[in-house]
């Protein structure tokens, strides 16, 4: 069994972010970049499959982004992936996940062997979109199951059962392999790589490739053009309601009805 894990580097969710004055992007000064938390679930799931089964031949990690994303790829290798593919793109295309998915598909289909499982995060906490996984499945001609919280692969490694979270319940989905899965919180708890594994990861092979040199990508361009970033519209200052709890309850209900008109 061969497993592909897709990881992306994103700003730490704790970072307070600001936009460059000309709106051309994020002010990266002082911002810590980390592996997208949902992608860590994907990496962890891949490594756990290898620990539990004897038929996992290879785990390949792929990342797409600016050159600095190599650091995130190394973290995934330290978690247990065997080798890495780093696809380098210009930052301006990072907002079009269809384009990113096309480039990843172009990179991984160079290898005729193919993958039995492709694991992605449910969404990146940079674009907050979640387009990449389903789009990659389409480009690879695979079925996909989105936002899974439980995964069981059968003994012979040709079928899988997954539970996915939907509004108001869980969907139980059965599928043949190969398949692409996007990982939701609750699937697994990502491990912290140990120091020896971090050291080992530095020696694992990584292929670095410019997206434009991939098959079919020379002429490809994002269909969605990035125009700019802006801070979210400021909310009006909070109106503090004072008084005894009884007075607060009365006044709050009054403003919600008469001013805000929401109840």
């Amino acid at each position: 069994m061969r497993i592909l894990v897709v990881v992306k580097q994103v700003p730490d969710s704790r970072a307070s972010l600001s936009v460059l004055a000309d709106g051309s992007g994020l002010d990266k000064a002082g911002v810590r970049f980390v592996c997208n938390p949902f992608d860590e679930f994907a990496a962890e799931q891949a490594v756990q499959l290898r620990e539990k089964r004897s038929d996992v031949d290879e785990i390949v990690a792929v990342t797409i982004g600016p050159a600095e994303a190599l650091q995130t790829l190394r973290t995934t290798l330290a978690m247990g992936a065997d080798r890495g593919i780093q696809i380098v793109v210009d930052e301006s295309v990072m907002f079009d996940e269809l384009y990113l998915a096309r480039a990843i598909a172009a990179a991984v289909t160079r290898d005729e062997q193919g993958y039995d499982l492709v694991l992605c995060g449910k969404q990146g906490i940079d674009n907050d979109a979640g387009d990449l996984g389903p789009a990659l499945a389409e480009y690879l001609g695979l079925p996909h199951i989105g936002a899974i919280v439980e995964l069981v692969v059968n003994e012979s490694g040709d079928r899988a059962n997954a539970k996915r979270q939907i509004e108001g319940g869980l969907e139980v989905v059965e599928t043949g392999l190969p398949v692409l899965l996007t990982c939701e919180k609750g699937l697994v708890e990502p491990r912290y790589p140990s120091l020896p594994n971090i050291m080992k990861a530095k020696k694992k092979p990584v292929e670095t490739v410019d997206a434009k040199t991939l098959p079919g990508m020379a002429e490809a361009a994002p269909r969605a053009t990035f125009i700019g970033l802006s801070p979210p519209p400021a909310r009006e200052a909070c109106t503090i309601i004072e008084g005894t709890p009884e007075e607060m309850a009365k006044e709050l209900v009054r403003v919600l009805r008469e001013e805000a008109k929401v109840i």
């Binding site: 700003p11 907050d128 269909r223 802006s230």
Partner: peptide, 21 residues
């Protein structure tokens, strides 16, 4: 021209989807 929240809602991204296609 579309706007969509990004970076955990900390920014709004503006994108343009083409007139053709």
């Amino acid at each position: 021209r579309i706007q969509r929240p990004s970076y955990c809602g900390k920014c709004i991204a503006e994108l343009e989807l083409p007139a053709d296609g």
